[in-house]
Amino acid sequence: MAAAGGKTYSFKVVLLGEGCVGKTSLVLRYCENKFNDKHITTLQASFLTKKLNITGKRVNLAIWDTAGQERFHALGPIYYRDSNGAILVYDVTDEDSFQKVKNWVKELRKMLGNEICLCIVGNKIDLEKERHVSVEEAEGYAESVGAKHYHTSAKLNKGIEELFLDLCKRMMESAQADERSRGNGASHTSTARRGVQIVDDEPQTATSAGGCCSSG
């Protein structure tokens, strides 16, 4: 879904995760390098962009924050439609938030297949003492679903650069592979063409189903 011309890639990345796991802090740390700072210049932290240059290729990264409250869960499909990557954040001190991540992974894989690069992020590692999600469990799970796992701390600015850089590289690879596979005969009727539409019922049933089976 990179922009045509091959010069600049435009990627859309959605941030998913329960409220209070630190999605906003994470992205503010990445784009503004600030944490709980009074001098944050941006008016909002829900849509942020970052321009990168990775091995000579320009990348425009658009980071879409999503509302994490449970009541908005059903709206997920509207957000993550046509995104190239998803960052699934949980709080290492909160077992529940990790369960939510599992639900999201199931849903994303079901709706978008393997087109989307998944990153599972355990945030707040500065609170190591209160950890409730074990490293082995989290990493094992990530591997089992074809996602990468990262440990970050927005407070200490740990692991965040690596997370985004890695994700960008993976998205570029899949975009290049996509271009190659499409070849020259491919028409422009890509999935990316159509805009956002209000999705009616099927995603909801999908999410509720995901919710039930997640414990297994």
């Binding site: 435009s10 658009a62 879409w64 999705v199």
Partner: peptide
């Protein structure tokens, strides 16, 4: 949705707010 230039809805800031509006209506 039908007649906007697609790239604007896909990645731009306007697209993000528009998506949120769609979410609001769906909600």
């Amino acid at each position: 949705t039908r007649f906007c230039i697609p790239s604007r809805l896909m990645t731009g800031e306007d697209g993000y707010y528009f998506t949120n509006l769609c979410c609001a209506v769906a909600f």
